[in-house]
Amino acid sequence: MIDFSATADIVAPQLLGCTLTHAGVTVRLTEVEAYLGAEDPAAHTHRGVTDRNRAMFGPGGHMYIYLSYGIHRAGNIVCAPEGVGQGCLLRAGEVIDGLELAQERRGDVPFARLAQGPGNLGQALNFQLTDNFSPVTGPDFRLSPRPGEPEWVRGPRIGISKNADAPLRFWIPGNKTVSVRRGRPRG
């Protein structure tokens, strides 16, 4: 069982291989990024509590759903002690159940891209802003443990401009659902 009171950089690799179910679709998580609160300029919580980021300040094991670029709903799983403001961005996953529903939501895209990238994963799982603060233990979300520990690697985060070189992105190497870092081969 994952201890969501641990810091995001500890929780993040533990999420790889776990499954997350929401709104009729299940994905196996293949890529996540850790955001470390006040000490991390890329974190939504870097400057403290706001109405938008309040869910990130605890308790752990809950969802922080937000609008990215005004159109994409992305999600983090909150971790670290309550009040700290850390979380793990869900970057990519492999759809393992509810494929037809995920395809309806995402349109005509290749299988590997159904939940590749935070906005696409949010669309495949039908994240809504009203899902903010929902626990990952049900009833709306269900995070299930992974069978064994997959091989994983870590490296710089992608898609951000601040603190991008911090090795806080974790992924299952060789998995086709993992985001591609522009100008570099798939990890």
Rank of each mutant, 00 (worst) to 15 (best):
P185Q: 12
V84A: 01
R28G: 05
S144P: 07
A12Q: 06
P139V: 02
Y64L: 00
R73C: 08
I77M: 07
R28C: 13
E149H: 04
G83P: 13
C79A: 06
V78H: 04
E39H: 00
R142E: 08
R47Y: 07
F127R: 02
A23P: 07
F170V: 15
D97T: 06
T177C: 14
Y69V: 13
R157W: 08
V180E: 11
R113S: 13
V49S: 05
A42R: 02
Y64H: 03
E39S: 08
K176Q: 14
I65T: 06
P185F: 09
M1P: 12
V180L: 11
C79Q: 04
H46A: 05
I172G: 02
I71F: 08
P135Q: 01
L114F: 06
A164S: 11
V84T: 11
Y66T: 07
I158E: 13
H44G: 00
S161L: 11
H72S: 05
N132K: 04
E104V: 05
D3N: 09
I96S: 08
E151L: 14
V153E: 15
E100G: 01
V95F: 00
M63D: 14
N163A: 14
F127K: 04
N175I: 14
T137P: 10
R28H: 05
G93E: 12
H72A: 01
K162L: 15
S144G: 13
E94R: 11
P156T: 15
A124W: 11
R106W: 13
I172W: 02
R154T: 15
T26H: 00
R106L: 14
M63W: 02
T50V: 04
I71R: 01
N163R: 00
R52V: 12
D108I: 04
L129M: 10
H72R: 08
A74K: 05
G122W: 15
T45I: 10
G58C: 08
N132F: 02
L101I: 15
S68K: 01
G37R: 07
Q123A: 15
A6S: 12
A8S: 10
E104R: 07
L129F: 07
I71G: 01
T30P: 05
A80F: 03
K162S: 08
R105Q: 14
D131F: 10
C79N: 00
N76Q: 07
L90C: 10
L15Y: 01
P41N: 04
A92L: 09
D165H: 10
Y64W: 09
A102C: 11
P150E: 12
P59G: 07
G183N: 11
E33R: 08
N53Y: 13
E33C: 03
R146C: 12
A6F: 03
P185I: 10
R47C: 01
T137G: 09
G60Y: 09
F111T: 12
I160G: 06
A6N: 07
I65H: 02
